[in-house]
Structure formats: structure tokens, C-alpha cells
Amino acid sequence: AADMEPETLEARINKATNPLNKDLDWDGINAFCEQLNKELEGPPLATRLLAHKIQSPQEWEAIQALTVLESCMKGCGKRFHDEVGKFRFLNELIKVVSPKYLGSRTSEKVKSKILELMYSWTLGLPHELKISEAYQMLKKQGIVKC
């Protein structure tokens, strides 16, 4: 299955988040995570690609992208964690949940998943201080309700 996967991160994220996928493409998701570790610029490129897909108006595309993000956070190491833990990426998640930006046209399903992921990272990656800072800000602004 690994040999059938496209090469580039761009091609892999397109496959793993294709709105026409009937179910989650776990081979594709794992292939993206593997590839981002192999490339020098893999982590910053991966977070840019993920941010764009997570901001998709197509719910299924966004949900798949959040699943890729979740899976990569579990499977990848410090280089990827550090990129996700920058405001450069976190701001893109904040835009999706904030009514001042994309929040009013985003489904509750997508917004909830983003907040759940961020909360889980505040517990699992307490040294990633910017994640905790961003999450506390969302709580203060009333975006996190429970």
C-alpha cells in the first residue's frame, strides 16, 4: 500500500482529505505523517497545508484534515509539535472557531474537534506554552464553553 501513495506532501494531503473519500483514508493519513518527518522543511510545510484544509468550507474535508493533524501529533516528534505549537499555526485554528473570522460559517462539529484537540494538547504537551496560552485566550473570550 505504501508504494501506491503519491510522493509529495501536497499530493498526500490532497488524497487524505479528499471530499470524495467514503471513509477515512488511513493509509493516506499515515503516509502524510511519514513523509513530513522525512523532509527538511516537512513540518512547516505540513502545518501550512493542514491549515488550508482545516479552513475548508467543506466539512468532510476539514474533518479529515483535523484527523490527519491529530494522527500526526500522536505519531510525529518534536519538530512537528514545535510547528503546531507556534502562533503561526494556532492562529489559523483560532480563525476557524472565532465568529470574528470564519466561526459563523463553520459547523459545530469542526469547531468542537479543534477545541478538543487543543485541550488535549494542553494536557499532553504542557511544555508547548503557546498552545496553553492560545487555549486560555479562547476560554477568556467565551469560545470554549465547557
Binding site: E41, F87, N91, S98, K100, K130, M137, Q141, I143
Partner: peptide, 15 residues
């Protein structure tokens, strides 16, 4: 484009 040891970042978005 980011260099290999790029530690630069933006500010937290103010919502």
C-alpha cells in the same frame, strides 16, 4: 521561505 532552524513566529491573534 523558512530556513531549517527557523524559530520565528507571529503574535497570538487578538479576537
Amino acid at each position: 521561505t523558512a530556513s531549517f532552524h527557523d524559530d520565528s513566529d507571529e503574535d497570538l491573534l487578538n479576537i
